[in-house]
Amino acid sequence: MTIKTVYKRPKLLKERLFHYCPGCGHSVIHKLLCEVIDEMNLKERIVCIPPPGCSVFAYNYLDIDMAESAHGRGAAVATGIKRVSPETIVFTYQGDGDLSAIGTAETIHAANREEKITAIFVNNAVYGMTGGQMAPTTMIGQKTTTSPYGREVNKEGYPLKMSEILSVVEGTVYIERTAVNSPKNIKKTKKAISKAFQVQIDNLGFSMVEILSPCPTNWKMSPIESWHWVDKEMVKEFPLGVIKDRIKVKKC
């Protein structure tokens, strides 16, 4: 009898235990990145810019080149690398505290300059690593360590929708919002990542995938509750789907 392998641990994922909490979306996204980079045969020409945040140690897991950036400055570091080495595929991996708070300016201006880079934006609605403080993406009413009674609009404003904001910036070519909370959404996320990388390979402009990602620890939920919470709450505020696709226009 022949035995066929249906799923194997991705080749580019180092043999090492993730430091992430049980059920964390970061680990799923790392897995997907490894699969996509391997399938697109990019290992030798790709550089990742990991952020401060829970994913600060991404270089321990993905067997590709990395250059750590300061908090929020991913897009600036990526710009530098891409400009001196245009053949390199450069992507930032950023949390919501990183990309949509301290790094808003860098991100918007890199996108507006039509930098040929890709942002993998992991939106878990909190500052994960530092203990679950409120982020710009925190949901209205969501309890965090800095909004113990829930986020209030008249004090802290509304959840910031970075994908929609960036979609009106001229230099962005492809923006999609996905989630990693079900088999179907995980598959869609994988497709979105490869599409975003392809935009860069074709030298078209700035691409971004915003991934809604569960953070069971700081949401104070069990892993499966947090995966459901993405569907129940986050998707209402951050609808999934392709937010901008100018690939065809840019190609002709």
């Binding site: 009898m1 022949t2 035995i3 066929k4 392998t5 249906v6 799923y7 194997k8 641990r9 991705p10 994922l13 235990l17 993730f18 992430y20 049980p22 059920g23 964390c24 979306g25 680990s27 799923v28 897995k31 079900s182 088999p183 995980i186 598959k187």
Partner: peptide
């Protein structure tokens, strides 16, 4: 295997 965050599961078909 698709959902396993730890990549701890491998799947085989006979």
């Amino acid at each position: 295997a698709i959902v396993c965050p730890e990549a701890a599961i491998e799947v085989y078909r006979e």
